[in-house]
Computed example of a mutant assay.
Amino acid sequence: MINENNMLVRDGVSLKYIDSGESRGMPLVLIHGIADSWHAFELLLPYLDKSIRIIAPTLRGHGDSDKPESGYDSKEMADDVSELLNKLTFEKAVVLGASSGGLVARSIALRYPEKVSGLILVGSPLELCKNPNLRQLYDNEISKFGDEVDKDFVKGFVSGLSGTNVPSGFIEMMTEETMKMPSWVWKEYTASLLAERVPENISDINVPCLIIWGGKDEITGRSDQEEYARLIRDSRLKIHEGLGHMLYWEYPEAVADDINEFMHEMV
């Protein structure tokens, strides 16, 4: 059963989040990427082990969470999620970051190591400051947004990420979710992603880390994943050669198997 709730975290910002699975199970926090919401994990959730306690927040500025004027970088969002965990009285949790949500997840691991028992990065970039496609998208379109975001842009953005074998109804639902992100959030969050670099202390992450990546991912490269595996000492890299960036949309069963195995090892 999925319970959807709101939680006031800090600075007057309230986050929408879901709470699912075994109430006494090991907590797994799912953090979505830019323009998504907790709904990005809907295809994955049915395949996650029912013994896991799943918390999936919608980050500030996204979906049905509050949309303040500022605070759109990975550190601010990490602080939000950390406070959510405090309010839920979790001592430790495994934190999963998908796509750009991986930057938030690793920031939690670095800023609040006492709260993190494990880290999972799914299709996560090492950094985006050198990504020519995101830079072009920002310079040519996002930075020029007016008060409203064009729905054709959003449709193209979601469809471009989706890859193959993703149900059309799910893509339509995620398009509607993405439309909830205001133009100023698009601008601020994308600009922060383009400015963020690999943390100098990333090697301080000292918990088991699972890195999951699709071999057809054209947004995050293989070299990023290999560098993550080199920088984070207790890490392993699992590659699904036939899948793309949103591999947990394309083949959620396989990604869930990876996550479930990792979670069972953490017990």
Rank of each mutant, 00 (worst) to 15 (best):
V267M: 10
V158I: 15
L231K: 12
G242C: 08
K87D: 03
E42I: 09
E4Y: 15
K115S: 12
L121I: 03
Q136K: 15
E253S: 12
Y251E: 13
P68T: 09
D79E: 12
M179P: 04
E176N: 03
P113D: 05
W184H: 13
S107M: 15
V9H: 03
S82Q: 08
E253G: 09
K67N: 15
G12F: 07
S162W: 04
V185M: 08
I108C: 04
K238L: 14
K187M: 11
S82Y: 07
G221N: 08
A109T: 04
G169W: 11
C129G: 10
I232W: 00
L8T: 10
L30G: 03
M246P: 01
D258L: 01
M266Y: 05
L103V: 06
E42F: 15
N5W: 10
D11F: 02
S124V: 10
T89N: 11
S99R: 09
D234F: 07
I211F: 06
G25N: 05
R222Y: 11
V94H: 02
R197Y: 11
I18W: 10
V255I: 15
E91Q: 15
V116K: 01
F41G: 10
V116S: 09
I212S: 07
Q136C: 06
M181A: 05
G156N: 13
D36C: 08
I55M: 11
I202Q: 00
I120K: 05
M173D: 04
L121S: 02
L128Q: 14
E69W: 12
K180T: 01
Y72D: 07
G160S: 13
I171V: 11
R111D: 14
W186L: 05
D152P: 06
L137C: 04
P199C: 04
W38P: 05
E127A: 10
V9Y: 05
V158E: 00
G156M: 03
I18C: 08
D64N: 13
E76R: 14
S37Y: 07
F157K: 10
I52R: 06
L43S: 06
D257R: 13
V185S: 06
N201R: 13
I212P: 00
K155D: 11
G21S: 08
F145V: 01
A35Q: 08
Y228H: 11
D11A: 14
D150E: 13
S107I: 08
E176H: 02
A78C: 09
N133F: 14
D36R: 04
V154F: 02
I54R: 05
R230I: 01
I52F: 10
S223A: 08
I31Q: 12
C129N: 12
W213M: 03
F90Q: 07
Y17R: 01
A229E: 06
H264T: 12
R230P: 03
A229W: 00
S51Q: 12
E4K: 15
L44A: 15
R111F: 00
R230C: 01
R10V: 05
A191R: 15
D258H: 10
S82N: 13
E127D: 14
D11C: 04
